[in-house]
Deep mutational scan, measured.
Amino acid sequence: MLDDRARMEAAKKEKVEQILAEFQLQEEDLKKVMRRMQKEMDRGLRLETHEEASVKMLPTYVRSTPEGSEVGDFLSLDLGGTNFRVMLVKVGEGEEGQWSVKTKHQMYSIPEDAMTGTAEMLFDYISECISDFLDKHQMKHKKLPLGFTFSFPVRHEDIDKGILLNWTKGFKASGAEGNNVVGLLRDAIKRRGDFEMDVVAMVNDTVATMISCYYEDHQCEVGMIVGTGCNACYMEEMQNVELVEGDEGRMCVNTEWGAFGDSGELDEFLLEYDRLVDESSANPGQQLYEKLIGGKYMGELVRLVLLRLVDENLLFHGEASEQLRTRGAFETRFVSQVESDTGDRKQIYNILSTLGLRPSTTDCDIVRRACESVSTRAAHMCSAGLAGVINRMRESRSEDVMRITVGVDGSVYKLHPSFKERFHASVRRLTPSCEITFIESEEGSGRGAALVSAVACKKACMLGQ
């Protein structure tokens, strides 16, 4: 009897593995994704193909990295998701002549009506938060230079001027797309009239992360975010950046690689679950690469896999709870928690219980395998993109072996128990001629924006502006 049951459990697990095998990517698959990513990057950089390229390769006008001589107080704003952060950054000489960066910050959550109302409502709310922060720190009387981390696709015309191309991540505030974001912020500050600010720089969160990590390690020339969304930036040779005049030196390019796949480059790798996630998203047909990796989508992918296993009578005796059938019910943090389970399955059992399920031991094991399959594919897909960037940098610099540091931020990278190990191992397999160091950014977005502002202020002083 026991043997029969054991055989049935083994057969069930084997069927589960057959279904989950769809998520496995072979090294040849990853090399294919990497080569296609490089081709799209090239198209994004070139003037004649930029418009139709899915990977936009947006110039950021960040050319210099901090040298350690900029000092002063800077205000930093960070808008990239449902939370908005205001930070005071003091850049100065530390002990023994070292450079020191001290920060104080406060988080504000953005109400739904500000995210989806008008641009005026959104930026009025942001300036209200700045006003509140300055009151708390008794700094209303000071006109501070301000660095703005704005983590949406922007076409820069200068370091302090950028046109919002399109909202992502659930934002829909009308009247912002096609307009200068810094102008919208300046107008809102003017409307309030109770404080003055000098907006000197606007950067993407990947750029802010790279600059913040450069402060720790001067070989950091790539910034990457794996959180709600997924994106990367890197220092490109100016001669390859056709959208900006000049051939000397390097400029940081914001790849906006989340949109890779929007022209069909990933079609052969998309599964039924991916198509369902895409169809029910706020932007169907867009940001397809990001939807395979980002935390906004990972939990939902797992939920759809679990429903398939229920329908195949391989999980929960073929019956799903009402909660499990509800879109968004299986949160991405559950994926991390399930994979963090120590082996007694308590954590998995508790999560499934909150979803109205009474799982068996085998159910718990199957749910864990589903989570591992989805998150491992995410790590491997992400590795193909980064390997594409790094191999490109090595080739354009004609280096036999390139040493490089990548600064990384984002909740999936930082909080998932195995993502970074799987990701690092896969990147290294795909970049055999590179020695890569990964560092995690601390308060990256805010500190990085302030350091970019410090560079901009120093330049302005040198130019006598």
Rank of each mutant, 00 (worst) to 15 (best):
G147D: 02
Q323L: 10
A454G: 10
K414L: 05
R46N: 06
R397L: 01
K104R: 08
L122M: 06
I130R: 00
A456C: 13
I390F: 04
D187P: 00
H137D: 03
G170A: 14
M197V: 10
K142S: 10
E52L: 11
D217C: 03
H380I: 10
I390G: 00
K169I: 07
P66V: 12
G444D: 07
V101E: 14
E27T: 05
K291R: 04
R155Y: 15
T149E: 12
L315K: 00
S441H: 06
R428G: 13
Y349L: 09
R5Y: 08
E435I: 11
R63P: 00
G464R: 06
R377Y: 01
R155C: 06
E52R: 09
K414G: 01
R7G: 14
R369V: 07
E120V: 11
H137Y: 13
S445R: 14
N313D: 14
G446R: 12
S321C: 14
S321E: 10
A378C: 13
R429C: 15
N391C: 09
F74K: 05
L134C: 11
S418T: 06
K420C: 08
N350S: 06
L301R: 05
G170C: 14
L25W: 14
V277Y: 10
E237P: 09
S375H: 03
M238E: 02
E196V: 09
E28V: 04
Q239L: 08
V89I: 14
R7N: 15
T431I: 12
E120P: 07
F23D: 01
Y214H: 14
M57R: 01
L58C: 09
I19C: 14
V244A: 06
L451C: 09
S418L: 05
S174G: 13
M34W: 04
L88K: 03
L146V: 15
S426W: 09
A188Q: 03
Y273M: 09
L185S: 01
T116H: 06
R5I: 14
L306I: 03
Q26A: 06
E40N: 05
W99S: 12
G410H: 03
G68V: 10
A329Q: 01
W257H: 03
A11K: 08
L271T: 05
V305R: 02
L122N: 05
H218D: 10
Q24W: 15
H141L: 10
G446L: 15
K420W: 05
L79V: 11
K32F: 07
V91T: 12
T209D: 01
R422V: 15
Q347R: 06
L79C: 14
A208T: 07
Q26C: 15
T354W: 05
A320V: 12
G68Y: 10
K102L: 06
G299E: 02
D158F: 10
E22F: 02
S280T: 12
H416E: 03
C461S: 09
V154S: 14
A188S: 09
V401G: 13
I159Y: 12
L122Y: 15
L357A: 06
D135L: 05
V71E: 12
L122H: 09
F171A: 10
Q26E: 14
D205L: 04
A282S: 11
V310W: 03
R63C: 14
K459L: 05
R186C: 05
T354G: 13
D341Y: 06
V222A: 06
G299Q: 01
H317E: 14
G299C: 04
I348C: 10
E290M: 05
V335C: 10
G147H: 11
P153D: 15
M197T: 14
H50T: 08
A6D: 15
R186L: 08
L88Y: 10
E265G: 08
G249A: 00
C434E: 00
S69R: 06
K15N: 11
G356F: 03
K142H: 10
L25D: 02
T332Y: 03
L165A: 12
E331H: 15
I19R: 13
R275L: 09
M402D: 12
R394P: 00
M202P: 03
G183A: 07
E17I: 15
M210G: 02
V338Q: 00
E93S: 12
Y289L: 09
R345C: 14
D113L: 08
C230T: 07
R333Q: 05
R191K: 12
R303Y: 00
Y349H: 15
T82C: 12
M87S: 05
V305E: 00
A329M: 07
E93W: 09
V241E: 00
L45Y: 00
F171K: 09
R358N: 12
T255D: 02
L266K: 01
F74V: 12
Q18F: 15
V203S: 10
G343K: 12
G223V: 05
T149W: 14
C461K: 14
K32M: 06
M107P: 05
S411H: 11
S373W: 06
E245N: 12
Y234C: 11
Q24Y: 03
T354L: 12
L271A: 05
M298Y: 01
G356P: 00
N313T: 04
R369F: 07
L309W: 00
L134R: 04
M298Q: 11
A10V: 13
S212G: 10
L134D: 01
E95Q: 06
S453K: 15
F74D: 01
G446Q: 15
P66R: 12
C371T: 05
L146P: 08
L45E: 02
L276G: 14
V408G: 09
R186V: 09
D132N: 07
F419N: 01
G94K: 03
T82Q: 06
E96H: 10
V455H: 02
G294D: 04
A188R: 03
V401K: 15
I293F: 06
P432Q: 05
L266W: 03
S396M: 08
A454T: 11
P432E: 10
T342F: 08
N231A: 12
N204G: 07
S353A: 15
D194F: 14
L357F: 14
S76D: 05
A208L: 03
N283C: 08
K104F: 06
D78G: 12
Y108C: 06
L315S: 02
P66Q: 03
P111A: 09
T228W: 14
L304M: 12
L324I: 14
D344Y: 02
Y413T: 03
Q287F: 05
S360P: 01
G80A: 11
G227R: 03
E440V: 07
G223W: 00
G295A: 15
G444T: 03
E443A: 12
G178P: 07
D187T: 04
L304V: 09
Y273K: 01
P284S: 09
L58W: 13
A6L: 10
S373C: 12
S360M: 09
M210V: 02
